[in-house]
Design a binder for these strands. Structure first.
Lengths: 189, 189
DNA sequence: CTTCAGAGCGTACGATCGTACGCATGCCGA
DNA sequence: TCGGCATGCGTACGATCGTACGCTCTGAAG
């Protein structure tokens, strides 16, 4: 062999780069179109690395989505931990919805793929449950538990609709929805 | 060949059975795990039928999801066309959310797979946009357009959370959320 | 009864897949 | 300096895939 061949001991970032490449590929091509070979090419690592660093494709996917969930939870934390009163919490939720549905559809796609897996496999369902639990903890600092659950569902739905719909809700409408869902015993019209 | 071989002209339900088998398979195994062969086995048709009746796997999937979307739209219609006043509309929406997230996760899984495709491919996005448009038409018979959009998003989010969460919202909580989101200018607490 | 057009499918091809295994490589102790 | 060993990867195997093509068979026309 004339090229580099084995490198001996090295590079703890190999795993990270593989995981990142996996998430990128899933976002761009869908889980149906990822393979060891395509991930390896994308990450710039040899095919053999795949089964060396990860027990198999399934294990790699679990780890990749685990990483994704961690990042999302961190994002939720960063938005929802800060506000100290109810009005600011509503603002933060509004911001979060717009952040999640903005720009490319990376977040949307990865979330959808995760939910799809969650609907069928308990391991993935744990990821999403933990995610929902964490965000509810934040919301419950400002709202009662029932309201928190309703608001959590609204965040989900508005994020999705904003991303899939030609004319997404503008900020004022989002804010209005957040206000409505977090307000009890309203006088009906 | 000793078995049946070709059957000559026949059976217009071949296509239907293939499409149904496709949806069943996707619901059970995920889009990543469907193939011409597995669909054929499931539908009880020969492999050759696949490329005979459909231009290819992609075309089959589009048609299958088209059929799914039609059925869902019909379900939305059946729930949302009936009510004649605002209160009954709220009840109907509540019923719809519970219907969609009940029992098996067939609806959840297929919807997630469709949204995932919609996020990446315009053809599928049209399907979902049409679906959203149709449901909004119903909702707008009872609520103003902005409210209809917010309610539509809430339906989405609550359906998902009910299906994925260990203790789904009970009916009273769902109804409360529907009431809140459809009530304007509430007095804040 | 004979013919034949076209509906429908059996089958085979090339591509791609996941995975395992043996070998190349560089580091460390002596 | 040199041996041994753990790290890391090149490669090959068997399975599975989508698809195209030519053959079989049916029903209708005559």
């Amino acid at each position: 062999m004339l090229s580099v061949m084995a490198t001996g001991h090295t590079d703890p970032r190999r795993r990270e780069r593989i995981i990142d490449a996996t998430l990128d590929l899933i976002a761009e091509e869908g889980i149906a179109n990822v393979s060891h070979r395509r991930i390896a090419t994308r990450a710039g690592v040899p095919l053999g690395s795949m089964t060396y660093h990860f027990g198999g494709l399934e294990e790699l996917l679990r780890e990749a989505f685990g990483r994704f969930a961690e990042r999302i939870v961190a994002l939720f934390d960063s938005y929802l931990a800060a506000p100290n009163d109810r009005e600011r919490a509503r603002d933060a939720v509004t911001d979060l919805i717009h952040e999640l549905s903005e720009d490319d559809q990376r977040y949307l796609v990865l979330t959808q793929e995760l939910y799809t897996l969650a609907a069928r496999q308990p391991a993935y369902r744990e990821l999403t449950k933990e995610w929902m639990r964490r965000s509810r903890v934040h919301l419950e600092r400002h709202f009662d538990p029932d309201t928190a659950r309703q608001l959590d569902a609204l965040i989900e739905g508005m994020t999705l609709h904003r991303a899939l719909t030609p004319e997404p809700h503008d900020r004022a409408l989002t804010r209005e929805a957040v206000t409505r869902i977090t307000t009890r015993d309203p006088a009906q019209r």
